[in-house]
Structure formats: C-alpha cells, structure tokens
Design a protein around this nucleic acid. Structure first.
Lengths: 354, 354
DNA sequence: GAAAGTATCGTTACCGCTAACGGAAAATGC
DNA sequence: GCATTTTCCGTTAGCGGTAACGATACTTTC
C-alpha cells in the first residue's frame, strides 16, 4: 500500500492536517515542523493521492484533450507541445480520440468530464454546434482547438487558416502562375477559411475563380492521398488545365502530385503545388513539397498557457488565439534554378522545441 | 453542480446505495427498482464521479501510457490503437511523455501512479533497469512496450525485432546483394535485437561482418535523417563500399539515401536500402522505401487486450508478446523491372483499423 | 496585568462513492 | 405453522484528502 498522510502524521506525532498544510505550503505552520514533515515525506517517497485530493478540493490537475485522430501529425505534435507545458506545471493529460465521429466525440466529452478534469481541449468534429450542449453548461472551462465555431463564444487556439490560404495563393501567383486551382478540405472552419483566403487572393489579383477549379471534399484526413489523386485527375480533365494547385493539406498534395506525374507533366514547370502542414518528410518526397507550416508546436504551447490561465483564474472573456502560419518553399513550387541554390533543405523546417 | 447519486436517491425515495447498486448491475436489486433508477439516471444524464468511485473502490478505469516521444509515428499509432481498445471497454487513457529522458520518465511514472491508474504501460528509455525500483514494488500492474528489459520479469508487448533484422537482411541477400551494412539503432533491446538478426542472417549465409560495416548510434529517434546521413557517408568512405544497407528506422534510411544520391550512385542498383517502421510517406519518397512494417496497430491492440486482462484478473505469470513484422518491398530494394509491375503501391501498406 | 493580537496546530465535517454487513419482509421447506 | 432461506433494501464505516473554523499557547499593547 502506498504511504498516506496519516502515516506521516503518526510517525511525526502530529495531526494529519498539519502534514497536509506543510505540504501545500500554507503559512500557519512553523518552519521547523514543515522541515520535519518534508524530511519524512522525502524519506518515505510520499506522493499525495490525486484522486482524494481532487475529490476533496475539486482540483484534479488533469486536463482533457479530445482529438479526431492521434495519428495525424498535427494533433500528435500539438499534444506533445501541450503536454510539455502541462508537465512543467504539474498537470497531467488525459487523452481521448473521437476518430472523426461526432457521436464518439460527445461520448468522450462526457466521460472525460466525469473524470473531473480542470479544463477540456477539444478539436471538434461536430458538423454543427448542437453537440456542444452539455459542455457549455458545465462549468469546466473548455478550449476549442484547430476548428472553431464562429457562433460559439468560446476560447479558441488554432492556425490562422485564412492567412494560410492567402500566403499559399500569393506565393503561387508570385511565381507567375495564373490559373490557380484549389483542392479544398472539409467544411470545418479550417477548410473554409483556407478556401476564403485562396479566393480573396485571386480576386484581389483580378483573377476569376472558375467553379471547376475548386474541388470540394469531406474526408481529407484519413485517405488524403486518394482524395488528392482523384481531385487532381478531375482538374486535369478540365478544359482549362490549372498551372498551380493549393492543396488543403500535404497528403492531398502528395496524391495530386502523383496524379500529375503520371500524366507526364512536370512540376513545378507545368503545374506547381503548395500543401499545408509541412510534414516531416516534405524534403524527401519525390518532389519536395512546398508547404504552409502551421507552427503546431507554438500552437500547443499557446494552448497550454491559456489552459493554465483558465484553471488558475477563470478568465471570463473568450480568447481567440490564431497563430500566423509560415511558408516553406521547396521544389514543388520553385523554379529549378532557384532550387539549386538551396543546400540544406532540412534546415528550413522550424522544429519546435517544447 | 453535476448530478449525484444522492439526488437520484432523493427523487426516487430510495437510499443512495440502492441507486449505486442498480447502476453497477448488482443482483440484490429488484428488476423494477432498477428500471426506475435507470430511467431517472437517463433523464438527468447522470454520470458517476470517477474520482469518488476510484477512491472508494480502488479502481479508476484509467490506464497510464508513458512514451519517449508522442510525435514518433510508432508511438502515435500505438497510442491510437491502444486507446481504441480501451475506449470500447470504458477505460480512459492518461498520457505522459518522457522526451527520451530517464529522469523525466521516472518522474512521470510516479505522478501517473499517484493518479491511481489501474495499469501502466511504459516504453522506457531507461539505460538500465535501475530506474524501475518503485514500479515493481507498487502493485499496479505494468507492461513494457517496444523496449524490453531481459532481466526484468515483466509483461512485454513489442515487435519481434530479431525477426525484423533477419527479414530485412534476408531480403537484401535475396536480391543478390552480398556486402550488407547496417546503420544500427540505440542500445535498447529493439536496436540490439535487430542487429542480432542482421548479424545472424549474414553469418548463416557464410558472410563475414566487417567491423566497419555496422554504424552504431545512440539518438536515432529525433534526428534520424542526420544520423543516417552521417552514417552513410562513413560507410561510403570505407574501402569496401557496401551494396546494401539495412537501416534501424525509416528516418535513418531517408538520410542514408540522401547521402548516397549525392554521390551520384544509383538506388537500388549500386546500393539497396531497407528501413524499418514503414512510415506513411514511404511510397512517395524520392526513392520509395522498402521497409519493415511493425504492425503497430496490432501491437497497440494486443497491449490493450493484455491490459484489460491484467486489470480484470491479475495474471501472475509475465506475458511476452512479440508481433512478427512484415516486409514491404518498394523501389529502394527492388529491381526497376520488377518495380514497374507494381501499380498501386499504396495498397501494400496495411493500415490498421482500430 | 488584562485585553488583544499572533503563531501554530487540531477538530469537525464533508467531497461522492463503495464494501461489507445488517435486517425486515416474502417465499420456501417439511 | 414455524423455522429457514431468499429477496430486497438500508446502515455503518470508510477511501485519502481538504476547507473552514476552533483551540491553544505565546507575544504584544498600553
């Protein structure tokens, strides 16, 4: 059996509550007793039972994180960075995956709340915000991650997806391309915002957006390559072939590039590509992929900080944190001459240090 | 405030304990009262407070997972599969990362245990098993993941790394290569076993292993490409250049391939490569990478099942589960003629369905 | 030197739930 | 018909902590 407060109290001939106070740094304890307690605590390697503490105090020092897919590099990296911040502040992380299923997500939200987490972070896959009944009235603070619900006045931490769309499109236009297509993502804010950024950029350059040059998809995350592949084939069949494509994420871009190469076209000469996510392997792909880096580590860091802020002193006003993404140019959108000048491509990828 | 047992009891005019029993499916409750209870429970959307339940019963329905790096696809996929099994059995997962630091790992083990997990899964980065004092005497069952400690009589779930080494090497030899080098991994069992498998295979074929053809490394996980790159350059400088290389993991292989291509050598003609891990992007690399698939999803599944078994009825005898890896051949070790016959390479990668 | 403050430690009650046992009414045995 | 078992529900006593308030002894104040 683990050692309890009671044991230490008995050993020292003081009351249980004295030990408890000494441990929690209360000031109505003499420095001498505190030292005696701490000494014994160290000897016995005592750790307070967090269940009991949580039950009694209402604070568990656990936060919950619900993501649609742990395997996705974005969420993995986010979770890692978040966990780093939490660990340094003695908070634990309980993780749940919704598998992109709104039903499961709701279920998980309930079970995680039942565990008394101090805060809840959700990268939601709810199509509407109906599913959030039951989270709102709970007084546990919660933060939306990556995917926002505009009409839900909640805390949010995510990429500035509108900027992502603009940056990618502006870049493609800057290389002289004019017929920029878009293989779009799902209808969450992330997908919609990137698409808006894309559309606005084109419009500002006086370019019209053909209906046929935007491919809409729903499930881009799991079967990204296939979606990109099919989408690209569709674009290639069109009368007016695009000379550049902004893809919702890197996996779609990979599929799209595959489809393009199969037709014998050259990249980026005939068609240039920009993805989003900046996956670790971007440099080593058949065609090194230009990509929007979402600064996922920074995101996780911010989310962690905000979480701590919320659990410490419940901030009332909703905070919206949108991290500006950056562009990493590689061969898929770079002229060969320019590409030759770049020597250490791996250096270009900012790796987050938690 | 959330609904409590007490509230339901009051509403129904029964005692608190009756409600508790009805909910937990005890048989000393009439079917009629049980239905009344369940009805009210549904109406109020009651969820038992897991902290209180855990404190009172000693069972939290949480298991802890400690990994060296969440960002690593292996651990991400493992965690995902594990979480799937747990979720279906109403268990939660609390996640901790050791960042490949033995100190942090020990710290995390203690904090996770203090949270009263029902079981603990650890992919340890302890150099020796000294660090396990404190886990053993705890009566919380624990399972080692991926990295074993031969002298610690513990439960283990991981890849059959020896087989991985053999399969990779045998494959390279079967393509006619004779001077097979190895860029090895860290000194955990995973790295050591793959190396043994490699060595044994060569020996059985009557081939001698030159000292210089095995590159030893320590930190392969984070900076895999660099390690592979440097290691390969070392191999290329040797008097007798290898004609095949088995790399500890895919990232090292990617770096090694990079170094090889820079010297103008062809792959797999001059030098063939096999990695390990079968990352998602293997098909789309500059040179599609042959790789050992560790069946990570299956691993996570087994780990989940074993965990449930342990928390249900504490199995005494240590169980050792080693999953046989499979080989996925791609261009990096396949003759071009053969390669041309393969049409849908993405189909070859068995993706786990949790 | 009594009132008032201060430092230090303890008592009581409870957080929400469960284990273990207790007890009364109904069903059963002979 | 009475003892015995079964069925069903409740009481008591915690799990290991914390909050809030008391209760001492020791100083300080004027």
């Amino acid at each position: 059996m683990a050692v309890r407060l009671k044991d230490i109290a008995r050993d020292l001939g003081v009351s249980l509550i004295t030990v408890s106070k000494a441990l929690r740094g209360r000031d109505d304890i003499s420095e001498e007793t505190r030292q005696r307690v701490l000494k014994r605590v160290a000897e016995l390697d005592y750790r307070p039972n967090m269940l009991a503490r949580g039950l009694a105090s209402g604070k568990t020092y656990i936060v919950g994180l619900i993501v649609p897919d742990l395997l996705h590099p974005f969420f993995a990296e986010f979770a890692k960075a978040l966990n780093g911040v939490l660990r340094h502040n003695n908070y634990g992380l309980i993780l749940a995956s919704s598998e992109e299923d709104p039903k499961i997500e709701q279920q998980e939200i309930r079970t995680v709340l039942a565990r008394g987490v101090d805060a809840l972070l959700i990268a939601s896959c709810q199509p509407t915000l109906q599913g959030f009944y039951g989270v709102e009235d709970q007084r546990t603070p919660f933060i939306l991650i990556d995917r926002d619900f505009p009409h839900l006045r909640a805390h949010f931490v995510g990429t500035d997806d509108y900027a992502a769309g603009r940056i990618a499109t502006e870049h493609l236009l800057s290389t002289g391309k004019r017929k920029v297509a878009h293989i779009a993502g799902p209808d969450f804010t992330s997908g919609a915002d990137r698409r808006r950024g894309y559309a606005d950029s084109l419009r500002e350059h006086g370019l019209t957006i053909r209906e046929s040059s935007v491919i809409a998809n729903s499930r881009v995350e799991e079967l990204g390559e296939q979606v990109g592949y099919e989408g690209m084939r569709q674009l290639l069949r069109a009368k007016s072939r695009p000379d550049a494509v902004f893809c919702y994420n890197d996996l779609t871009a990979i599929g799209a590039i595959q489809a393009t190469l199969e037709t014998g076209l050259s990249i980026p000469g005939d068609i240039a590509f920009v993805g989003c996510g900046n996956v670790r392997y971007s440099d080593y792909l058949r065609v090194p992929l230009s990509s929007i880096d979402q600064q996922t580590g920074v995101l996780g860091h911010h989310a962690g900080k905000l979480t701590l802020e919320l659990v410490e002193n419940r901030t009332a006003s909703p905070r919206q944190i949108r991290v500006k993404p950056t562009l990493v140019v590689r061969a898929s959108s770079m002229s060969p001459e320019k590409a030759r000048k770049v020597e250490k491509p791996s250096k270009k990828r900012p790796r987050p240090q938690s």
